[in-house]
Amino acid sequence: MKKVYAFEKNCLGCGLCEVYCKTAHSKSKDIIKTYRKENITSAIVIEEILSPKAKTYFALQCRHCADPKCVKACISGAMYKDQNGIVKNIKEKCVGCLSCVLVCPFGAVKRNKDKERKIISKCDLCIETGTPACVENCPNNALKLMDEEEVK
């Protein structure tokens, strides 16, 4: 299956992927409104690594594992792997137990920021639009939607 791969040699750490991830998952689909009126958690996070020579950045998001631990750990059946291999979370079923956050080996599942209802937030690959929002808007081609074979 195609997944988003991050190429750290090209990642600038600009954070635009986060901006566009939030917008893509907003109701308004408008950047400014998303930031002003909606409180959305980005499913992709830029990690900044301070190594001795230079800053390195790494874009972190769900790997859509073949055998996802989060699905196994889910107590309400909200987390599942769909027929395309995408690991998804049904918001309505999520009870906010955060078991998936605990078991994810990548730290790619986050708690949302919504104070009213505590549920989790993760990458849904938003592939229905053709290209995930983060890939589409990466200014330096550091994020690519690729097959595992292509990456190798």
């Binding site: 600038l12 750490g13 600009c14 954070g15 635009l16 986060e18 901006v19 950047i31 400014i32 930031y35 002003r36």
Partner: peptide, 13 residues
């Protein structure tokens, strides 16, 4: 200021 969302892209770049 009406448009700035404090995303800090400018700060980082």
């Amino acid at each position: 200021e009406k448009k700035c969302i404090q995303c800090k892209v400018c700060v980082k770049q």
